[in-house]
């Protein structure tokens, strides 16, 4: 028996919003520790890695490890039926071919259940090597979303360049070019608005705007985002989801011809 209950359905709704542009289907691997999802998009340019820890749920029970293959557009349709303040419970029997979502209104006067067919997905677990990154940049997630949106008007790529002076985001195309430079903040009123840079070596890499914009769909999950870069390896864009886990996106850089 698998059962996971969240007091607010909004976290699960936001998680779905944050992955459904990249993935059409994915396996939720559930064990004692919580729920893990790891999948590459169809073109193998990006990878999503989601962790929801068991201790972040209001109730969590997983008697046997279970892999729930879900069609994410179907799951998204079902989660749209939940009110933001509803409690959501995901349930599946061992060896089940369906998963059930139960939504309860705050006063318990409305209880809905939705049963969804599971999919048999080929399990391809990827080992993500431990990497020491040359640069890590922490900034407001809303600021990062705005930068990606603004620069997308200029071209298909964003160049991210991190030095000890700060981080620069650049784009260029038919209408001209744009540069946004952020310096490390000396002092801020709100910690989540700080720009914090840790740099061992300067790094400059080029990434596709389209994917960065997909990643920023996770903005509402976390006030801050962390970018990790090293030469010639995938960028990591991490949103920590308060009290329950994180979503990490990996993106292969563009290569100079």
């Amino acid at each position: 028996m698998f059962e996971a209950r969240l007091l607010r359905s909004s976290i699960l709704k936001k998680v779905l919003e944050a992955i459904k542009d990249l993935l059409t289907q994915a396996t939720f691997d559930c064990d004692d520790n919580g729920i893990q999802l790891q999948a590459m998009d169809n073109s193998h340019v990006s990878l999503v890695s989601l962790t929801l820890r068991a201790d972040g749920f209001d109730k969590y029970r997983c008697d046997r490890n279970i892999s729930l293959g879900m069609n994410l557009s179907s799951m998204s349709k079902i989660l749209k039926c939940a009110g933001d303040k509803d409690t959501v419970t995901m349930k599946a029997q061992d060896n089940a071919d369906t998963v059930t979502f139960v939504f309860e209104s705050p006063n318990q006067e409305k209880v809905s259940d939705y049963e969804m067919k599971l999919m048999n997905l080929d399990l391809e677990h990827l080992g993500i090597p431990e990497t020491e990154y040359s640069c890590t940049i922490r900034l407001s997630s809303a600021e990062f979303a705005r930068i990606c949106r603004d620069l997308s008007q200029f071209g298909e790529s964003i160049v991210i360049s991190c030095t000890k002076e700060g981080v620069r985001f650049s784009a260029s195309g038919d209408i001209g070019s744009a540069n946004i430079a952020l310096a490390q903040t000396a002092s801020v009123d709100k910690e989540e608005e700080a720009v914090v840079i840790e740099m061992e070596e300067p790094v400059t890499l080029t990434f596709a705007c389209q994917y960065l914009n997909y990643f920023t769909k996770a903005t509402s999950l976390s006030p801050q985002v962390q970018l990790s870069m090293s030469a010639d390896v995938p960028l990591v864009v991490e949103y920590r989801i308060p009290d329950i886990g994180h979503i990490r996106y990996y993106l292969a850089p563009k290569i100079d011809d």
Partner: peptide
């Protein structure tokens, strides 16, 4: 110009 890289090769199938 630039070409979009792929993740294959960075991550090993377990």
């Amino acid at each position: 110009g630039t070409t979009q890289g792929r993740l294959d090769g960075f991550f090993k199938v377990q």
